[in-house]
Amino acid sequence: MPGRRRQAILFTVLGIVMVALAVALQSVWVVVNWRFSVLLVLGSIFFLLLIAGVTLNSIFLVREIRKNEQHNAFLNAVTHELKTPVASIKLYLETLERREVPPEKRKEFYRVMLDDSNRLMNTIEQVLEASRVGNRDARGKQSVSLTAVVADCVEMAGTRHHLPDGAIHLERRLPTGDSAIVIGDAQELKSAVSNLIENAIKYRSGEIKVAIEVERLDGKRVAIRVKDQGIGIAQEELKRIFGRFYRTSGTAAQKVKGAGLGLFIVRSVAKKHRGRAYAASDGIGKGSTFTMELESVFPAKVVL
């Protein structure tokens, strides 16, 4: 990783030096040949083309280096996320095969293996979902109740993480009878909301305390906000975190395992439903708020 960053810095510096050299040469040429107006015009045009070419080439090289860096980070993360649960399951199965394990211990082994299997399936689903939502071809659209989607995701997260009552608080800020209907893909919306809730749980700094709001903004938009009291996000990373494979650079964040696809899925789903996704945080250690705004139907006529 440091080597690739040095390469990016090298190409950036090289591009700046080449631009500076070109500017210097052009300035000298203009001073020497200021009387030849036609040559001056042609030289200026070629000079601008040269500058544009050097700049575009430098930008392209730096972007390619960053993409390769992100792909390598993604492969390392996914490999770890796949290898670790598989190795754990194999170890417990070998133990059960070779030894006589007491019933209580056997139940514990089964529970751990189920947790590892769920972790494995979650990683696979994340990769597949990221590939699918990246495709702009939309599947069949239907009327989807956001309140029902969010409620299902909250229940699923509580069951998966064995959360106590009150760990996730859901508040509906909607007019009476409005269930915030969105025309779109129910599975994709559920995946996006689940990712927001999972992130709030994974990146906690202590006790799990998550607040979720479903709010009617106006007649055409509805917002889902997920607020946590977790490790927070640096201001310069608030926009980057929605990129594919991107993971924050903070020490606390790096301890959390993942492939860097969750927020990319959230942003992609929001765009496909004519909305947007963004994050807010007061800084490291001060929690975060993730918002997904979607185009909706009001008043609601169909509830699924």
Rank of each mutant, 00 (worst) to 15 (best):
R111C: 00
G43Y: 00
G3Y: 09
Q7K: 08
N118G: 07
E125G: 08
L163C: 01
Q126V: 02
K90F: 05
T289A: 11
T123N: 00
A300P: 09
V23G: 12
S27E: 07
A186F: 03
R225T: 09
V112K: 10
R225M: 06
A277M: 11
H161R: 01
E171T: 14
V144E: 02
T248Y: 14
S179L: 04
F109Y: 15
I89P: 04
Q70K: 14
H80S: 08
A211G: 09
S131R: 09
M18Q: 09
S27D: 07
E155N: 08
G53E: 06
T79G: 15
N199M: 04
A157H: 00
H162T: 01
I231A: 02
R139K: 14
V30D: 01
V17I: 13
M292P: 10
R240E: 11
N195D: 10
E104P: 03
A148I: 03
F264R: 11
N199V: 02
V297L: 07
E295L: 15
G177M: 03
S44A: 02
V210L: 02
D282V: 04
T289H: 07
A138G: 05
K202G: 00
E129W: 00
D137A: 13
R240I: 01
L56C: 10
A200G: 03
A253P: 03
G260A: 06
G134E: 04
A259E: 14
M292G: 06
V144C: 03
G206L: 09
A180G: 13
A270M: 13
G232T: 02
R4G: 13
D218I: 00
V28M: 04
T79Y: 11
D116S: 13
L82I: 13
L120M: 13
G250S: 14
F47Q: 03
P2S: 07
A223D: 11
T251H: 12
L40A: 01
L120W: 10
D115M: 13
N72H: 11
G232D: 05
E104V: 10
E97W: 06
T159R: 14
K257Y: 02
V38A: 02
G206V: 07
L261P: 02
R119A: 15
I212D: 01
E188P: 05
I224A: 03
A73F: 06
E94K: 14
F242L: 06
D228H: 02
V193F: 12
G3A: 10
H161D: 00
A234K: 15
F60D: 07
E69S: 14
R160Q: 02
A138M: 12
A22S: 08
A200M: 01
L163A: 01
E155G: 08
A259M: 14
E129S: 09
G184Y: 02
V193S: 12
I284Y: 14
